[in-house]
Every structure is written in structure tokens, then in C-alpha cells.
């Protein structure tokens, strides 16, 4: 049975147009949750958002543009992050922001229960 966090993560993935994979990682919690196809790309680039965190934990977004598409990273409280992989060469920043504000509180609540 899927946890409520996995359900939310999949809901996030399906709401994000062109998204192929999603993952949750954190520098504070040792739980990694993945969903969708091409998750290995997110695994391969996991260290980039991990080390994109600034010293004041104020990082909110990272966009990593690679040959095969883009990885959009949403940070929650500067230490937890949700990465989304799309095949878009230019990441849709407006969509990313909309999704961020829509799901921010939900993710924050779920993370508190992990």
C-alpha cells in the first residue's frame, strides 16, 4: 500500500505536464521516494540539488539543464527537495512556480509526518 507521501508525489507528477519522473530527497531525512519512468536520471543528478543548498538554507529552486531535458528541483525549507525530470530543453519556470505554490504546504505537512 502506498504511503500518503507517495500518493502526493504521484499526484504532483501527473499534474506536471511533460514530467516523466519525480523523486523526493532530503539532507535531513534519510528517506528517498521515487515515481514515474526515467528515475535513474534523477538518481544520477541527485548530488546537484543536494549541494545547491546555500549556507542559509534559502534555496527554493534549481533548474538543471542537461542534453536530454531538464531537472526542476523544488526545495522545501531549504533542506528537502523534490526533483522532476522533463524532456523540455528549456524548463517552464512559470509552471514550476505555480506547481511549487500549489503543492508547497501539502509537501510540508507530509514531510512533517515522515
Amino acid at each position: 500500500m502506498k504511503s500518503s507521501f507517495e500518493v502526493l508525489l504521484n499526484q504532483f507528477l501527473s499534474s506536471f505536464s511533460n514530467a516523466l519522473a519525480v523523486s523526493f530527497n532530503s539532507v535531513e531525512i534519510s528517506i528517498s521516494i521515487e515515481g514515474g519512468s526515467d528515475v535513474e536520471i534523477l538518481r544520477a543528478y541527485k548530488d546537484i540539488p543536494m549541494l545547491s543548498i546555500d549556507e542559509n538554507f534559502t534555496t527554493s529552486f534549481s533548474f538543471i539543464i542537461i542534453e536530454s531535458g531538464s531537472i526542476i528541483v523544488f526545495f522545501i525549507d531549504g533542506v528537502h527537495f523534490i526533483s522532476v525530470y522533463t524532456q523540455d530543453k528549456e524548463p517552464n519556470k512559470e509552471l514550476a512556480e505555480r506547481m511549487y505554490y500549489k503543492f508547497y504546504e501539502k509537501f510540508k505537512n507530509e514531510i512533517a509526518n515522515l
Binding site: I48, D54, S60, I65, I66
Partner: peptide, 17 residues
């Protein structure tokens, strides 16, 4: 991280503060 030959990063944007 970005210059790691195993990665194929073209550019990256980091928003903070």
C-alpha cells in the same frame, strides 16, 4: 559537480534568498 564528466549539464539556475 557540473563539470563532472559523468554529468552532461549545459547550464543550471539556482534560486535562493
Amino acid at each position: 559537480l557540473a563539470s563532472n564528466p559523468e554529468k552532461e549539464i549545459l547550464h543550471l539556475i539556482n534560486q535562493y534568498e
